[in-house]
Amino acid sequence: MCLGIPGEVVEFLPDQPDLARVDVSGVRRVINVGLLADDLPEPGEWVLIHVGFALSKIDENEAAAALEFLEGIGQAYADELAALAESRIE
């Protein structure tokens, strides 16, 4: 129910500025983008879909930053594990 899923905007419906077709892994549905009227998404942008409405745009920069942070933690962890393994005294 809190189920929000990311989808890519494919196109707007002709004569219906509120409605856009989105793609979720090759599956498509028409959703209402009225809640993003102040900053409508363009085709190619991603939105968060919930019960047939777009609630928010997905900020690709923020997503990249989030992944970078996770990447960083992952790398630091891998480095430490490596250091730990090397420092073992047999």
Partner: peptide, 20 residues
């Protein structure tokens, strides 16, 4: 699936769990 799969990565989970 974009914006989904990347956030289900097990290796990164191990790192975060160790930090926590």
């Amino acid at each position: 699936m974009r914006f989904v799969d990347e956030f289900r990565d097990a290796d990164k989970a191990h790192a975060l769990a160790a930090r926590i």
